[in-house]
Design a protein around this nucleic acid. Structure first.
Lengths: 337, 337
DNA sequence: TTGAAAGCGATACCAG
DNA sequence: CTGGTATCGCTTTCAA
């Protein structure tokens, strides 16, 4: 159980009667090496169990082939994104370092240092937030891709999601079903995507000439509990709504629980639409009507974009991925009671 | 937006009129440096934005302060474990590399190489499976901690979970409620913990003198669908059970859906107990009675154990974490029909 | 308490 | 096509 210290290129070279340069070339530029020599070296490497020391390689090359993925919290929303990142990283031969800021800007700053320290070549930022200092001296940020959660007027390469469009489609769905009093349980003000969803909600109402009623909008924190609280508030209204668009699936579930607790059935008495189409959505009882976010793709594309950025392959074009409404069992036409 | 190449210790040293050795000492052994010099250097470092090059440090020290966490799939079960790992890593100043084998043993082998290549110092293995070659030449494994999912007769340091005990408690709970025909939707044969849960199930029955009936046990794959299929099979029995223990929460949800599809209510007509107490359990409708696995602790303790292992702090003691039955809304006494 | 210098293990340039 | 060697940036002896 002791660390199997791999031999160095030097010892392998000695054992095979070649120079270290040849060893290195066989591994990195095989075309430059005579076929016979190459075979022999390859066999020797295999026999001796040689593995190049990546710390040395990184030092010499000035790069690490490692990226840092920074999430605000390790919530299930990020899981599929991580899967996408991981897959792309694998394809492009990058390793993936995980960082969790727990919403602490200081920790965020520490992670940015990791690039200056050559622990990683670049960052995929899922927090939608730069560390305190970074925003001002915006001219020397590390290679960076924003994913899922963008940032207002920055020209940082971004893999965005059309949150507004998704919300709009969801509200249109409810309108088409015949709902007119449609509420919105929004996400926190500080989160850009929450704002985008809210504006999509408003846009759909406007297009349908349904006046915006601000008493029908309540802020929450993406949690089941806040969804529940928000719903209770909505129900205390003089003229309560008949449907609600929630900022994510958790809040939708909270809303459904609140409705159930006062004896209202979903969807018969009240329609609820979530956002994300996370793991719970499909299996929940009743299964959630929700807006699907292509989470895997967000991760995959972000990693690809960062890899391109690092290899300087021409200009990077930010992109916005579409969402899609998935109609399941929590929405239907309002029943006249 | 260009990579902010941090100055090297050499240039900082030059700028401050000290040697590189002093820079290094200030950062790693501050007690060896004159207070005045230290202050001055610290200020200089701050002013110049110096960050030590970790690739160089790793090379020199022969270690990376990085660990590799290997999961079989990026499923939500592993999220809290990762959180625990991440937290402990943070406390012990380790970085965390993520690896996802997608159940492919070849990929597993590649990850083991990462240690020989000095990309990481050790591995936290959550797959319960060594790569093909490693098992035989067991004498030179990398520093390794098994977490959550152990391995038969290995003496590799392990943070285990008392799966059997949890299953036993769950079945005892059902027995106490008055159930006698209790089924088990088990996990795949190949997974050790699935076997442990099965044996806990049998043990509880034996203790209660309820004969074991193998037609009441069905294998699944930890998925909602397999839980559903298993439940349907059980219901086709001559004398169907009145309760079931499932190998995880997903299967429990599958079972509940199957029951609902044939008009049986949970818990009135049928009791269902899950395993894991994952994100879904508490918010599901009805909320799941399930066996809680201390996932965060599993991750936290594994990382701590690995850190101890790497720093050679005496002998490492494997440990087993307890589970706890959480009774919610899917279990009750059988109703005589 | 500080500085000079060796060396970690690769890569890549320059000769041959 | 191959070998010799400078070099990446740090840590750590050894001497002063």
């Amino acid at each position: 159980m002791k660390k199997p210290t791999s031999p160095s290129s030097k010892s392998v070279a000695a054992a095979l009667g070649v120079s270290v340069a040849t060893i290195s070339r066989v591994l990195t530029r095989p075309d430059l090496v005579n076929e016979e020599t190459r075979e022999r070296v390859l066999r020797g490497i295999d026999r001796l169990g040689y593995r190049p020391n990546l710390a040395a390689r990184d030092l010499r090359r000035g790069q690490t082939s490692t990226v840092l993925v920074v999430v605000p919290v390790l919530a299930s929303f990020f899981l599929d994104i991580l899967r996408g990142v991981e897959q792309a990283a694998d394809e492009r031969d990058f390793a993936v370092l995980m960082a969790n800021t727990r919403a602490d800007p200081n920790r965020e700053a520490t992670y940015f240092d990791q690039v200056a320290s050559q622990r990683a070549d670049g960052i995929i930022l899922l927090t939608g937030q730069l560390p305190p200092g970074a925003a001002s001296s915006s001219r020397n940020l590390p290679p960076l891709v924003l994913a899922a959660e963008g940032m207002a007027n920055s020209n940082i390469p971004t893999v965005a999601v059309d949150h507004a469009g998704g919300a709009e489609e969801a509200v249109r769905h409810l309108l088409n079903l015949g709902h007119r009093r449609i509420a919105h349980l929004a996400g926190p003000d500080s989160v850009l995507s929450a704002g985008a969803r809210l504006s999509g909600y408003r846009k759909a109402l406007r297009a349908a000439r349904v006046p915006f009623d601000e008493t029908l909008v309540h802020r929450g924190y993406f949690t089941v509990e806040s969804g529940s609280i928000g719903m209770h508030t909505l129900l205390r209204q003089h003229r309560p709504p008949t449907a609600v668009l929630c900022a994510n699936d958790q809040m939708a579930i909270g809303a459904i629980r609140a409705l159930a607790s006062v004896g209202l059935r979903v969807p018969e008495d009240f329609s609820v639409v979530g956002f994300d189409d996370g793991e719970l959505a499909e299996v929940y009882a009743p299964p959630l009507t929700t807006v699907r976010i292509p989470r895997f793709d967000v991760g995959y594309q972000s990693m690809m974009m960062l890899a391109d950025l690092l290899s300087q392959k021409g200009p990077i074009r930010s992109l916005t991925l579409a969402t899609r409404l998935v109609v399941r069992g929590t929405s239907m036409a309002p029943q006249s009671r």
